[in-house]
């Protein structure tokens, strides 16, 4: 990763406290991170550490309790900024629309003309290997294919920042590796900044330029590890020795945190 690249997203002193009838839950922070433009950044942490909350705050899906988030130099407001795309872990396909209509759903609500929509659709279908399924309905697809539809739906909006919230969490291991390869291809093809939230150490180690390790709740950044991978890379790097070293390093940092997250009172 080029350290000279300009800062794209910046978090300063971001915290999140949930207030409910039962009391206050300090879920997150304070957190300071800078994402550079075009960087692939991963966040790993034990379950319940507030990873997803962090993503929601950056996407302006929920306001931070304290602190500020800036995207492309402007503070984010209370709506999702233009140029930000989000892919969730859960199946977010619209079951009543076929694949093509799912992918163009957001685009059709923008001032984009028909031929442009068609072009972007074809591009996304091809990039995600969905050409033969344009007229299929989500119920006819496997979990991996549905997640491709959701990624394609994000891609056609041509986001400059792609946020991924455990996008492969519901998939089997082989599919995860293949989807990881596709994610890397998309990342290179679009030049977008990618923030990947995951609980899978190998996924983070294989995909990201930098991996931030989060503590148990309230989630803080314990350390940011540079992987030093070349931009041209794929899932084959799981077999190089450095991969093992990085994963081991991540696990050392996370082990104590994960044990803490497992204690009943932390749930």
């Amino acid at each position: 990763m080029d350290p000279q690249s300009p800062i794209h997203v910046s978090l300063r002193g971001v915290t999140k406290v949930f207030v409910s009838g039962l009391g206050r839950t300090h879920a997150l922070g304070p957190i300071d991170i800078d994402l550079r433009r075009g960087e692939f950044f991963a966040v790993v942490g034990p379950s319940g550490c507030g990873k997803s909350t962090l993503l929601d705050v950056i996407a302006a899906l929920t306001p931070p309790s304290q602190g500020a988030v800036t995207f492309e130099g402007r503070p984010i407001g209370n709506t999702v900024p233009d140029g930000v795309g989000v892919v969730f872990q859960e199946n977010a396909c619209f079951p009543w629309l076929n694949v093509a209509d799912n992918i163009t759903f957001g685009l059709r609500r923008q001032p984009v003309d028909k031929t442009e929509i068609e072009q972007r659709l074809q591009y996304a279908l091809q990039l995600m290997g969905l050409q033969d399924f344009a007229h299929a309905f989500p119920s006819q697809l496997s979990g991996g294919m549905r997640q491709r539809v959701c990624i394609a739906r994000t891609l056609v909006m041509q986001p400059r920042l792609i946020l991924l919230d455990e996008p492969f969490g519901a998939l089997d291991q082989q599919t995860r590796l293949l989807m990881g390869d596709e994610l890397l291809r998309i990342w290179r093809a679009t030049g977008a900044t990618v923030l990947l939230i995951t609980h899978a150490l190998d996924e983070a180690a294989m995909l990201a330029d930098r991996v931030a390790v989060m503590s148990a709740r309230p989630g803080r950044i314990l350390e940011v590890i540079e992987t030093g991978w070349p931009r041209e890379r794929d899932s084959q790097i799981v077999s190089v020795p450095e991969f093992g070293a990085i994963t081991a390093r991540l696990w050392t940092l996370l082990r104590a945190q994960s044990m803490q997250a497992l204690r009943p009172e932390a749930v």
């Binding site: 929601d56 996407a59 899906l61 709506t79 999702v80 233009d82 930000v84 795309g85 989000v86 969730f88 872990q89 859960e90 199946n91 977010a92 619209f94 079951p95 009543w96 759903f105 957001g106 609500r109 994000t154 909006m157």
Partner: peptide, 27 residues
């Protein structure tokens, strides 16, 4: 309606009426 669809509508910058009309009611 799963919460993730509500989030998706926010990401796609749909207003409340449009969200009900094109996301929640169809679901």
């Amino acid at each position: 309606v799963p919460p993730v669809l509500g989030k998706t509508a926010l990401v796609l910058q749909l207003g409340p009426v449009e969200t009900v009309r094109s996301v929640t009611l169809p679901y």
